[in-house]
Amino acid sequence: MMAATTPAALTRPELVCPAGTPAALKSAVDAGADCVYVGFRDETNARNFPGLNFSRKELGEGIAYAHSRGAKVLVAINTFPRAGQPQLWHQAVDDAARLKADAAILADIGLIDYAARTHPELRLHLSVQAAASNPDAIRFYAERFGIKRVVLPRVLTVQEIAAINARIAPVETEVFVFGGLCVMAEGRCALSSYATGQSPNMNGVCSPAGEVRYTETPQGITSELGGFTINKFTPNEPAGYPTLCKGRFIADDKASYLFEEPTSLNTLTILPDLIKAGVTAFKIEGRQRGRAYVAAVVQAFRQGIDAVMAGRPLPEIDLDRITEGGKQTTGAYEKAWR
């Protein structure tokens, strides 16, 4: 448990919200987001999903809308440029700078180097995909490239996060507070490409929809990815998207959710601990989830943060409806998860 330090002045964390489309960006801003993060409609970002993301024109309009309401827009360019073909990624960085994005969220060392050299005025955040999990790694990016904020990988406990914050100032940290949970260190997982040929690092997709197949049988539904069965559901069981690491597999003679159950990260109950740990920004996952999700989750966390800052008890908010399989976890933030 967190040490019961009660610093007189807690810093109000920024609420960083996902938007896969201009409509979701408006929803997020209207629901009380301090920042919205988005990506271009191509493989330069880690949510390169069909029909999702922003054209250059839409990003320009989105930034104007957010800025007119006091919110910031961060552009995720957080895949790893293809060998021999960095142009698409360089162009994305150039356009983010030109359109006056408030920051670019980058993962690849070479791309960070390009951004730092070419656009010294562009604020840089380190993506979770860079998996900087300790103070030395974070200092490397800060000292070498001037990274201002690091999104911490979802492998750390609250205590470890507090310890990191104490040692990397003035570099800011951002942590995930809600949404789909990677159980592997992000940016260091090739399970998706092993099954399908496409991975988050190279293509910006994990368990791509084009490789997904559902088969209805008298026993229920089977979900497959790249021809591998990821799960089977009986007719009354809630089914999920076959994200590889949330599947049921057989190991040691028994079938189980070996890596993780279909579950969503929800930290509403530990918000006070995360704020005390000195985190600068709280991030909500889910650029692929749509307006309804964005509005509901942003409102919930807006209320939660405001309550903690005002010294009020946490509001009871039920987000069951929009969590995977209706299940929630505080994930790696608590050590027992490991």
Binding site: G20, P22, K26, G210, Y214, G290
Partner: peptide
């Protein structure tokens, strides 16, 4: 084809 369905859902959701 799950991909085209995901695309359609995202496209419609994005239109507001």
């Amino acid at each position: 084809d799950t991909e085209v369905v995901v695309a359609l859902r995202n496209a419609i959701d994005g239109a507001g």
